[in-house]
Lab assay of single mutants.
Amino acid sequence: TGEEYIAVGDFTAQQVGDLTFKKGEILLVIEKKPDGWWIAKDAKGNEGLVPRTYLEPYS
């Protein structure tokens, strides 16, 4: 389980392990790392690192 967040901007993977997403996408945050990069999963089940500055809590 995780917390749902909504993307407030588009993000394109910079390196292997990053997750590309579009503004408005709902992501499930699995782990919040202290460096500001969180592990998240998208609706298709893809998992990767995302920058927390692009996310806001979804309710």
Rank of each mutant, 00 (worst) to 15 (best):
K33C: 09
Q15D: 12
P51A: 07
T53Y: 11
I39E: 04
W38H: 02
A13P: 07
L27C: 02
W38P: 00
V8Q: 07
L49R: 14
K41E: 05
D42F: 02
F11P: 01
F11H: 07
P51K: 09
I30C: 06
Q14E: 10
E47H: 10
I6N: 02
F11R: 08
D10W: 04
I26H: 07
T1A: 14
G48Y: 02
G36H: 06
G17L: 04
Q14I: 14
E25L: 02
D42A: 03
L49I: 11
V29G: 01
T1D: 14
Y5N: 02
T1K: 11
K33Y: 09
Q15V: 10
G9W: 15
I26F: 05
W37C: 06
L28G: 03
L19M: 07
E4H: 15
P34K: 10
K32A: 05
K32L: 04
G2H: 12
P57R: 07
N46D: 09
N46T: 09
L28K: 08
K22S: 10
V16C: 08
E25F: 04
K32M: 08
T12M: 11
I30N: 03
P51D: 13
G45I: 01
V16K: 15
P34V: 14
T53L: 12
L49H: 11
A43N: 10
Y54W: 08
D10V: 02
G2R: 07
V8Y: 04
N46H: 09
L19V: 03
D35Y: 05
L27A: 01
E31F: 11
Y54A: 14
E31P: 01
D10C: 05
P57G: 05
Q14R: 15
V16G: 10
K23Y: 08
Q15K: 15
D18R: 15
K32E: 05
K22H: 13
K23H: 07
L55C: 02
K41W: 07
D42L: 03
A40G: 04
V50C: 07
W37L: 07
L27K: 00
I26G: 02
Y58W: 13
T53C: 12
P51C: 12
E56V: 11
N46Y: 08
D42C: 03
I30Y: 08
D18I: 14
V29N: 00
W37A: 06
T53M: 11
D35R: 03
F21P: 01
K44D: 13
W37R: 10
G36S: 05
L55M: 05
T53Q: 12
D42V: 02
E25I: 03
V16F: 13
P57A: 10
Q15I: 12
S59Y: 15
V8N: 09
K41L: 14
G24P: 01
T53E: 15
A13I: 03
L28M: 12
R52I: 11
E25N: 07
I39C: 07
N46I: 09
I30F: 11
G17W: 05
T12V: 10
L49V: 13
I26T: 05
K33Q: 10
Q15A: 13
K44R: 14
K41G: 03
A7V: 04
K32V: 06
K32Y: 07
D18H: 15
E4P: 15
E3A: 09
I30T: 08
A43F: 09
V29Q: 01
T53K: 12
D42I: 02
I30D: 02
Q15C: 09
E47M: 11
E31Y: 10
K32Q: 07
L28V: 12
V8C: 08
D42E: 02
T20Y: 04
E3P: 07
G48S: 01
D18T: 12
T12D: 14
K41F: 08
D35W: 04
L19R: 01
A40Q: 00
I6Q: 06
W37S: 07
Y54T: 06
G2F: 14
P34Q: 13
T12S: 14
Q15W: 08
A7R: 00
A13Q: 06
K32I: 06
D10M: 03
V50P: 00
T12F: 12
V50D: 00
V29M: 02
L55K: 00
I30E: 02
K41M: 11
T53W: 15
G2I: 13
K23G: 04
G48L: 02
L49Q: 11
E25C: 06
G9L: 15
T1W: 08
L49W: 11
Y5S: 01
V29I: 15
T12C: 08
T12P: 06
E25T: 08
A40V: 09
P57W: 07
P57N: 06
D10Y: 04
A13N: 04
T20W: 04
T53F: 12
S59N: 11
K32N: 03
K33H: 11
G9R: 13
E56R: 11
G2W: 10
A43C: 08
G9M: 15
Y58K: 09
Y5A: 02
F11Q: 03
T1N: 15
L19D: 00
E25R: 02
D10A: 07
I30H: 04
G45T: 02
E4F: 15
Y58D: 05
V16I: 12
I6C: 06
Y54R: 08
Y5P: 00
T53A: 15
E25Q: 12
R52H: 14
A7N: 00
T53G: 11
G48P: 00
E47C: 14
L55E: 01
S59I: 12
E47R: 09
A43M: 13
D35G: 08
W38C: 03
G2K: 09
P51M: 09
F21Q: 00
V50S: 02
E47A: 08
W38G: 01
L27F: 06
G24F: 05
L55N: 00
A43I: 10
P34Y: 12
K32W: 04
Y54M: 14
K22C: 07
V16W: 10
G9I: 14
G24Y: 05
P34E: 15
I26Q: 03
A7D: 00
G48V: 02
G45R: 04
I6V: 10
K33E: 04
L55I: 11
I39S: 06
D18Y: 15
K33I: 07
K44E: 11
L27I: 07
E31T: 11
L19G: 01
E56C: 09
E3H: 12
V50I: 05
K41I: 13
L49S: 12
K41N: 05
L28C: 08
E31K: 09
